[in-house]
């Protein structure tokens, strides 16, 4: 077993894990960041969603061997320092989570969508948000994504920013 360098949320880590270990389990067990969740292990549910070099990815099916030390991994813990990401703010305001277990993944998926598309339509949201929520928070997720988009794009916000 060889040790491997990872860059997660701007910090460097060195981990010992077998090549085929899914990135999800490396993040959870070796690095110790447990905000990224296990739901299915087969890329079906999205609970394990992260950003890999800025793009949305399901970490349960990414083997450690495919990660380069130059890759930038962002997990829910690294989305913002102080819960100030517009998606986090909108989620709080709309009161989205129920049990909360899927929400790290939902928030990572929503923030990736908004990065690609500042003003997503309902159809964009339908296409991008394929994560499972067994509690059924979908209606509020949709509402919160629109709000997050407003928070990011409103003229008032721009002035502040």
């Amino acid at each position: 077993m060889k040790s491997k360098k990872l860059n997660i949320n701007g910090k460097n880590y060195e981990v010992d894990a077998e090549d085929q270990t899914p990135l999800l389990w490396v993040i959870r067990e070796q690095v110790g960041l447990t905000g990224t969740k296990f739901g299915c292990g087969i890329a079906q549910c999205g609970a394990c969603s992260i950003h890999l070099n800025g793009a949305l990815a399901r970490s349960c099916v990414i083997p450690l061997s495919s990660i380069k030390s130059s890759d930038k991994i962002t997990t829910i813990e690294g989305l913002s320092k102080d819960d100030s990401h517009p998606v986090q703010k909108a989620w709080l305001q709309v009161d989205v989570p129920q049990c909360g277990y899927c929400q790290s993944g939902q928030i990572m998926a929503a923030s990736a969508l908004l990065k690609r598309k500042a003003r997503p339509t309902d159809q964009d949201i339908d296409e991008a948000m394929t994560n499972i929520c067994r509690c059924g928070t979908y209606q509020r997720i949709r509402q919160a994504i629109h709000l997050a988009s407003d928070l990011t794009n409103s003229p008032a916000n721009k002035k502040l920013g």
């Binding site: 913002s80 989205v96 989570p97």
Partner: peptide, 21 residues
């Protein structure tokens, strides 16, 4: 009213049984 238990569900800090260490 909004829920009282939302904040730590938004940043990965909420610990579930599966996160015990």
């Amino acid at each position: 009213l909004n829920r009282l238990d939302t904040a730590d569900k938004l940043n990965g800090s909420k610990s579930y049984g599966i996160d015990v260490n």
